[in-house]
């Protein structure tokens, strides 16, 4: 006689759901695909350069993290000795924050004018502004460089940040958002005696807090990660950002000297960390901002 109670199918609650297991397996493989390259970078920041050159990444955590960190932050590799990690980090921060702030302030102002005012040339201004969404900076990079040169903006923070702001992504986003704000709010405010400036400061800006935060995160990451424009517009090493500095790092690894993997990988890590931290900590805002921007 068979013992029925041993039948694994007798209690469905305990049955292993193979579909679920497969789901998790795929997700774990996917997560590893995303994560392993970062772990490789992380591992090589803990060992000496000689160790890395000989053996490459290994499954051990070395003791050189502090040493590599000091080298990355305070040692320069260029001719002028100005492109230390510290100076590049500061420049990246200025680019990221300046870009995000500029984009949001200018975008909100323009969107407010377009949505809340009766303007004779509103349609014309709208098209003038939104045509900029069509052409990315990359396709007009050379003439942009020439103009920055003419205005003697090379190697300045203004030259680094302002030309990047010349597209209407934030304006478009805020315009969409303002249009979704109920009409009656501005009407109630007008009856309550609020003029255009007061309405903007007292009501619209506080109301847009979440949207501003989401925009700020997206724009900060976007600005921080800029590469092509900083590469062209900054030639002085003291103006380099971390991402701009990557180019020099790769060329250093090719050089005749002993490649400084510890320092280079540490700098790559520092270039990754702030935007990644922002995206992870403010995940829900970030996702909301990103996915709503296309509506």
């Amino acid at each position: 006689m068979t013992d029925i109670s041993q039948d694994p199918h007798a209690t469905p609650a305990r049955r292993i759901k193979w579909g679920r297991v497969l789901d998790h397996a795929i997700l774990i493989v996917g997560s590893l695909f995303m994560l392993i390259p970062l772990l490789v970078v992380l591992q090589t920041t803990t060992t000496t350069d000689i160790e890395t050159i000989k053996n490459g990444p290994e499954l051990l955590i070395g003791t050189q993290f502090d040493d590599n960190f000091m080298k990355a932050m305070f040692k320069a590799s260029g001719f002028s000795g100005e492109n230390t990690g510290t100076s590049m980090l500061i420049n990246s921060m200025i680019l990221g924050l300046g870009f995000a702030l500029g984009k949001i302030v200018i975008g909100m102002m323009a969107a407010y004018a377009l949505v809340y005012f009766r303007l004779r040339f509103a349609t014309f201004a709208f098209w003038l502004i939104f045509t900029t969404l069509l052409l990315p900076l990359e396709v007009r990079i050379l003439p942009s460089y020439e103009i920055a040169q003419k205005l003697s903006l090379l190697n300045t923070y203004t030259g680094l940040i302002v030309p990047l702001i010349a597209s209407a992504t934030a304006t478009f986003f805020f315009r969409q958002y303002f249009r979704s704000v109920p009409e009656e709010l501005v009407e109630a405010a007008r009856i309550d005696g609020a003029g255009p400036v007061k309405f903007f400061i007292d009501i619209l800006v506080p109301l847009s807090q979440t949207m501003i935060a989401a925009m700020f995160i997206i724009m900060f990451v976007f600005g921080w990660n800029q590469y092509l424009w900083p590469t062209m517009v900054t030639t002085e090493e003291g103006m380099y950002t971390l991402v701009r500095g990557i180019k020099q790092l790769t060329q250093d690894l090719e050089g005749t000297n002993i490649p400084e993997y510890g320092r280079a990988n540490m700098l790559a890590l520092i270039a990754i960390l702030p935007p990644v931290a922002v995206v992870i900590f403010f995940q829900s805002w970030f996702v909301k901002g990103l996915t709503e921007s296309d509506k």
């Binding site: 109920p182 009656e184 405010a189 009856i191 005696g193 609020a194 109301l207």
Partner: peptide, 26 residues
């Protein structure tokens, strides 16, 4: 004049006190 709207048009980020007092403040 004072007006009551169909969707109330309350200022979502203000407390009831501030909502009621906003017109007076202005």
């Amino acid at each position: 004049i004072a007006m009551v709207f169909q969707n109330y048009a309350l200022y979502p980020h203000m407390t009831v006190r501030k909502n009621i007092g906003y017109g007076l403040k202005n």
